[in-house]
Structures are given as C-alpha cells and as structure tokens.
Design a binder for these strands. Sequence first.
RNA 1: GGCCCCGUCGUCUAGUGGUGAAGACUCCGGAUUUUCGAUCCGGGAACGGGAGUUCGAUUCUCCCCGGGGCUACCA
Length: 479
Amino acid sequence: MDDSLRVRFAPSPTGALHIGGARTALYNWLVARGSGGALILRIEDTDRERSTAANVEQILDALGWLELDWDEGPISQHERAPRHRERLEELLASGAAYRDATTGAEVQAWRRDNPGRGYRGTPLTGAAAGGAAVRLRVPDGGETIVSDAIRGEVRFENALQDDPVIARADGSVLYNFAVAVDDADMRITDVIRGDDHLSNTPRQLLVFEALGEVPPRYAHLPLLHGPDGRKLSKRHGAASVQELREAGYLPAAVRNYLALLGWGAADDETILSTDELVHRFSIDRVGRAAAIFDEKKLRWLNGRYMREQPLDRYEAELAAYLERNEPAAATTFAAAPAAARLQACAIVSDKAQTVAEVWPLVAFLFTEPDIERVDEKVWRKVMKPGSRSLLRKAATVLAAIDPFDAETIERDLRGLIDAEGVAATRVLQPIRVAISGSNVSPGIFESLAALGRGRSIARLDRAIGRLGDALPGDDSDPG
RNA sequence: GGCCCCGUCGUCUAGUGGUGAAGACUCCGGAUUUUCGAUCCGGGAACGGGAGUUCGAUUCUCCCCGGGGCUACCA
C-alpha cells in the first residue's frame, strides 16, 4: 500500500478511446486502486485542431461504461495554458530554451549534412525572435537515462537528440513540454503509458531538469497490435471501446481480457474478477512484447461472464444493450412483464456469448413471427411429408399438458415421439420453426413453456395452415 | 537513413543455467444432443537464426533477421 502514489491517465481527444488506451487506463486504475493512491484524469487537448468536445465526451463515456473511475479531473490541459506559458518564460529567461525560426524541412536538411548529431539552433533575439518557435537546449554531452519499471534503464545519448520544439511561434506549448509541466504540477509519482512514448521520455526528462523538478517513475507498456501483427486500427474490427460495447461485450469481461493483454498472474490464472485484478496486478509483472488483440478469446471470456451473471443482472444488461442499439426492440422488451423478461433470459443464458446475440434468440417470445415469411430454405429443410400430421398431434398433446412447464412438456412430447416411432428431430424441429420462425432457438421445451400454451398452439395451427397450402394431402402420407 | 524497444505453441500468458517447456483461447477428433450453441473427453502445436560464455543453454553476451515505436511549430 502506498497512498502517496499518484498516477494519471492522459488521453488525447483526437478520436474515440481505443482498446490500447482503455488498457492503459485500466492498468493505471488497477495500480491506483490496488495501492490506495490517486488516479488523475487529464485530457491532452493542446492540439486545438484535432481535439473536439465530442471526443472528450466519448472518452468519458467509454471510461464510464468500463466502470473505471478517477479521483481528480478531468483536467483540460489546454486550460492550463497560462501556467505553461509561465513555465516557458522561466526557461526562456534562464537560457534553457530559446527562439529559433528554422523550419522542419531545414532541420531535416541540416541532419542530412550532419549525420550522427542532433540539431542545435541559434538563439534569435530582439525583433527577429518574433514569429519563431521555442526549442529546448539539449546538452551536447552525456546521456539521458530513462529508468523504466518494465524496460529497465534505457539510455539516450544527448548529442544525438535534436533540440526539440516545445512551443509554437504563437506561444502555445507542445506535448512534450505540457506533459512535463503537468506531471510536475500534479505531483505524479508514476507515469504508466504506451510504449510509443518511450522515445519521448528523454525530452520530457530534459524539461524536468531545466525546470528544476523531480521526474516521476516510468513504466512503458507494450503496444497492442491487430491479428496481422500491425498496430491496432479500425480495419481490425472492433478497435474502440464503443465498438466493443456495441458488439455486446460485458465491461467486466473486457476488463478481465484487457488485463491479460501484456500481463499475467504468477499462477497464470485466466478468469480474474476485477477485485482479484486489483489485488494481484503489479506493474513489474507486465511483459515487454507487443500483444495481439484476439477477439476470439474475448468472446469466450465474455460467454463465461454472461453465464455466471445473476438473472436480474442479465436482464438489465440486455435492456441496456437494446436501448442503445435497437430502440424498437427495447420498447417491446420493456413492455413485457418482469417475469417474462427474466424467463427469456433464463432460457438463453447458456447459449449467448455476447449480449448482442440474446435478442435474436428470444424475440419470438415478445413478437409474433410471421409464419408465412419464414425463410423458404429453412422451411423446406424442416417441414417434411408428415410434418403437418405430427404438428396436429403435437398441438393436441400440448392442449392437454398439465402443468405447462418444461419438464412436463418434454415428458409428453417424448411420449408422442415414441408412440409415432419417429426421430425426435422430426417432431421437435417443425415445432421450433412454428413457434420461433427459425430453426435456431433456445431449448424447445423451455421455449414452449416460456411462450405459454395458448400462443404455442396458435403458432402451431398457423404453421399447419401454411403446410396445408404447400403440401396438400400430406395427411395421408405420414412419411 | 538515425535513435530506441521487442522476439516461448496460430494467439494471450507461465517458466527455468540441467523440465516430458505448463495453462488458457483458437484449431482438429470424439462424446452428449431437439437446432445453434454450451458442456465433457482427447489430440496437434513453440523457445526466430548464428556465434560465444559454460560440463550444459530457451534462459547470460554479441551479431543477424524479423516486428514495432520515435525522428511534427501532433499527441
């Protein structure tokens, strides 16, 4: 326990929260919650062109859905501009930073002509300094060492580093400067972020040094890649937290899965509740190699979480999912009695791996399938000569079943199957299609019980009607 | 190009100077079965390559190869 520990999650609102960003947030959160320390949420919006309020909303929304909370913030980095300016002036005054109007193209050209050296500008003074960017002076000798909890000591030779631009000509500061100032002001003790920032770290350390501040400890996480081994992006399917939510994953499952991407418990346990994660997670057990995001494993894990949910929780997740993605279905579902909603969840609970898969399987309990429009291929596959007769007999059996529950229905329908001497599938599949409009549904006995006697028989009758049109005279041929 | 990071089954991880290199997902086969799933059982599958250190390297060092990141008046 270390309640003096302060970590931060600092996303840039230039898009939705990516899976990689979500994992970074999670790791910071786990470290904070496991130590009694504080998590600060800081929005890195110094790029006014690309940062939008909508993106900030999306990020907050994604963190909320993941159930990751924070102790301070959200703090807009952009709103701290006066403070950044103040610190910048200090460096300008001390000579640690200077005005330089050289363009990027010119620096590149300079580097071509001066291989093995970092660019050093010539300070501009007086009127000439107007309209020039500000660079940080990097020492010509020695090295800057990043002491990283995951990578060990990473050394960067100062002579090789360019003097980085830390503020634009208009005075607005750049990322590497703002980050260092903010991390210092917010007394961040541990920076846990993506590996893509490792190369930025020496620049930030140099800012700390110039400012006379003590830098935090660092931990750079391995990046997340897509199945093709390249950096995770849109074309790999679900790449943002919102997409994960739309795909029907549960927040707890996503947290569990994300935690395992780059980290493993000492005993290599796979299923870990958030509580266990908080207790067992440790940054020095994080691996060094980039991890590939594999949705198959997430699906499996999610299925486990789905099945282990209590029924009322299951129902709430389904309702929330429908509300977000299928408003019409949400209304229909909400209008049904609570008992019916819970029963629907009960009969699919061991089938669906994601919340998105639930409604298509149980919609028939809440809306009438149009028997005349059942897919022709499905219909032909299931409805054979003799089906009409068997459905009639099944309807008769159903009419007499008492009580109308899954066990009794199964007992009596199996009695019919035995009496007819046919394969169970010849009786059960036509019933399935008749009541659900599909050849894929939850268990048939449970489905009949959930639907109730009246509606079940009515749907059987409707199917018999369609069969009468399609297969006239089939009654005489039991097949 | 320069600088930096990384490299155990297809994937995520565990692990050790001497192991039959372990688990999970996927995949394949089988069982169960009223559909799809789910479930159960079984199987296949890895230390990137080359030197060196060592009695012995997957483990330590170097080189190569491969992948990735940074190299912006982006973050």
